[in-house]
């Protein structure tokens, strides 16, 4: 098992705890309706990161050049 898999399993263990964190979450004090949905922050954070990576990868097709481009 390599480092990456170890970390992913640890993270999955940690992520199993995250639903229980809702014990401390006050649903009466939500700001907009959207953050009253259970699982809003995790899903939003995950999708935001994945889409940022996808945008970066698409831009890389055009913008990435070799290390010595300006030399």
């Amino acid at each position: 098992m390599n480092d990456r898999n170890k970390i992913i399993y640890t993270l999955i263990l940690l992520i199993n705890i995250t639903p229980y964190l809702y014990v401390f979450y006050n649903f009466k004090k939500i700001n907009f309706n959207i953050d009253g949905i259970i699982g809003f922050y995790p899903i939003f954070g995950f999708l935001a990161c994945i889409s940022l990576i996808i945008i970066a990868k698409i831009l890389a097709v055009v913008l990435k050049k070799g290390d010595t481009y300006y030399d």
Partner: peptide, 16 residues
């Protein structure tokens, strides 16, 4: 605290 932890854990997951 809860919202921030949720955001961070899942962006870590997305990274790995």
């Amino acid at each position: 605290v809860v919202s921030q932890l949720h955001l961070l854990f899942f962006s870590a997951l997305a990274f790995f």
